[in-house]
């Protein structure tokens, strides 16, 4: 089932305090690509993947969008359903969503429009070998 809109967490709200893996505290709107990269480096067990948006469709669930990504070096195909206001962090660009207007309305978080070809930051478990 998709992530429900009513449960979109408040950590996307402008001003929310985020703790990096280094212990540093930053506001969500001030985060930069390097913050995620460094956090992944110092945290055990997690790694950052580059996830490229390859398609954006309407979901069968009303009010949701279906996002298709290719993830990591393996180019694995992963699809997720989210509300259009759900922000993703795009490399070198920052927060982006399918509906920047709704994101601004709900979270006051400035966003770019998420587009096919954007490379988002995602995490996965680090391989044990």
């Amino acid at each position: 089932p998709p992530i429900t809109s009513s449960h979109l967490p408040s950590h996307f709200m402008k001003g929310a305090i985020i703790q990096l893996a280094t212990g540093e505290l930053k506001r969500v709107e001030d985060l930069q690509t390097q913050d995620f990269v460094r956090s992944a480096e110092v945290s055990g067990g997690l790694k950052i993947d580059s996830s490229t948006v390859v398609d954006i469709q309407e979901s069968q669930w009303p009010g949701f969008v279906l996002l298709h990504f290719v993830v990591g070096e393996q180019q694995s195909k992963v699809s997720i359903e989210v509300p259009p206001e759900h922000p993703f962090f795009v490399y070198g660009q920052g927060w982006s969503s399918c509906s920047p207007g709704r994101t601004a309305q709900l979270f006051s978080l400035p966003c770019h429009r998420l587009q096919v070809g954007d490379v988002c930051i995602s995490i996965s478990l680090q391989s044990l070998n």
Binding site: P9, I17, A21, S39, S76, V78, F89, C120, S122, S124
Partner: peptide
Amino acid sequence: NVEPRSVAVFPWHSLVPFLAPSQPD
């Protein structure tokens, strides 16, 4: 009286999606 307000602190990894293939190759 001013009651102390707690400030929520969220971990960085809660902001990014966990994307992993359900069936590894």
